[in-house]
Design a protein around this nucleic acid. Sequence first.
DNA 1: ACCCAGGGTCATA
DNA 2: TATGACCATGGG
Length: 215
Amino acid sequence: MRISGNQLEALYRRLYAAYGPQYWWPADSPFEMMVGAILTQNTAWTNVEQALQNLKQSKALHVHAIIELADEKLAALIRPSGYFNIKTKRLKNYARWFVDAGCFRTLKCLDDEVLRRHLLSVNGIGPETADTILLYAFERPLFVIDIYARRLFKKLTLISGDEPYATLRLAFASVLADDVPMLQEYHALIVRHGKEKCSGDATCKHCAVEALISV
DNA sequence: ACCCAGGGTCATA
DNA sequence: TATGACCATGGG
């Protein structure tokens, strides 16, 4: 694994030039963002949109509604997002933790690493979900390593792709600027790029981004 | 019909 | 520490 700040900045500029700003995370509130982060685990976002829409229509997209709603009712609402029984438990675990921890008013005052540990203590919140919540709901500076990031950096031969999450996280953290808007945009662009298909002609954005990076 | 998607937990060795 | 099974819908 050999990652340099210059390479990461060059890649960011190339992604931004190709796709422009993505305006992530798509959510009307921080709490909706956190719910979406759990629902999208190993699931296509289009499925999550359906589930979020169901929750909105039932006025259930609120901490207390999640806590009070019967498991069967909640599971039925989030059904389109898949793994609905597991995700029902995870949403409830998270909502209870969030209230017990004092909601945003208290949580936003915690140090980055303390808050991260706290998030990871919730059953159902792993490193990726915790980091997306930290970056987009709590606006903490960090680089999210998801499946798209692994694929892209592997393709660019900057990583092997099977490094543990902690290894990649520390490697990126040591090299990237603590620029929250940039880091939010960076992750969004990587996902956007991952979904983009090759157009087949010379104007292909996908191929332009993946061309060799000269530092 | 098959494959995978904006992961994480738990049991096993 | 490191694999493997499991969870489940919807779109290509």
